[in-house]
């Protein structure tokens, strides 16, 4: 009989700070938590903006215009928006890449199937703390990623319908959600997002090392709150459109705006 040795990964050459942070699992997890936090910030702000759906088409339009004008006259129009978009893209990329590479690391550390069965434990592992959200992060994450692509095609690039008008966000949304399958895609994706955040918004405290006996009990409620807000807010839009609470309007503001432009 031989003495087994636990397989050991060879140490890597470390890059200088801050790149070294992204070379280790704990470092990657920290990046994932920071980008996750940033993404939560985006999703919340994005939702807040979209809530203007209930205040009328003009409000949304004005909001869109505001986003473009953000930062001017300090910097030219839309520049700040592009900077933010670049930041957002970076966060997505880092978040997804770190998730991917840690998932691979974990798979390598964990003989998923025991030699006879498919499961790691034949007795069927009985989980006591891990919940559906924590165990499905990878799947909810993938759903969100696919959804974002679809969403950009749908509302940002107008690739899914003919009626799409570049700056008429209000009617774009309403037209899109009036198609039942699309509304369902939105609902499913946002439920997945809420589940993802249900675990993520708690988990990031751990990953970032934000722990204190004073307020640890609040961390779970923060996660409940954020995921509930996103669930209710984002799912309400397709539902409201399907129920006819929010309906198509004549985009008069578009002409006003172009008239205004013409004046200048």
């Amino acid at each position: 009989m031989r003495r087994p040795e636990p397989p050991r990964r060879a140490p890597r050459k470390m890059y200088p700070w801050p790149l070294n942070l992204y070379q280790t699992a704990v470092g990657k997890k920290w990046v994932m938590a920071l980008t996750g936090l940033g993404l939560i910030g985006f999703v919340l702000a994005h939702m807040a903006g979209n809530l203007k759906l209930y205040m009328g088409a003009e409000d949304i339009f004005d909001y869109g215009e505001f986003l473009k004008e953000m930062g001017s006259p300090l910097i030219p129009k839309t520049h700040l928006l592009w900077i933010l978009r670049a930041g957002l893209l970076t966060m997505f990329v880092l978040h997804i890449h770190s998730a991917y590479s840690l998932t691979r690391l974990n798979a390598a550390s964990n003989p998923k199937a025991n030699p006879t069965g498919q499961k790691r434990y034949e007795g069927g592992q009985e989980f006591a703390a891990a919940n559906f959200a924590s165990r499905s992060m990878r799947w909810t994450g993938v759903i969100i990623a696919l959804y974002v692509i679809f969403h950009l095609l749908d509302l940002t690039w107008g690739a899914t319908s003919d009626g799409w008008v570049k700056t008429d966000h209000y009617n774009n949304i309403v037209d899109s959600f009036q198609r039942v399958p699309v509304a369902i895609i939105y609902i499913v994706a946002n439920v997945a997002l809420a589940i993802h955040i249900f675990h993520g918004a708690w988990s990031m405290f751990q990953s970032l090392g934000l722990t204190s006996p004073m307020w640890n009990h609040i961390r779970r409620y923060v996660a409940y709150g954020v995921s509930a807000a996103i669930l209710i807010g984002n799912v309400s839009f397709p539902v409201a459109v399907l129920l006819g609470i929010v309906d198509h309007v004549e985009p008069t503001y578009l002409e006003e705006a172009s008239a205004l432009l013409a004046l200048i």
Partner: peptide, 21 residues
């Protein structure tokens, strides 16, 4: 210690199952 740990084991996604066990 963390670097050594990572050369053998997986990474934590905060399941909390360990504390229960």
């Amino acid at each position: 210690m963390v670097d050594t740990m990572e050369s053998f084991f997986g990474s934590c996604t905060n399941h909390g199952e360990c504390e229960e066990a």
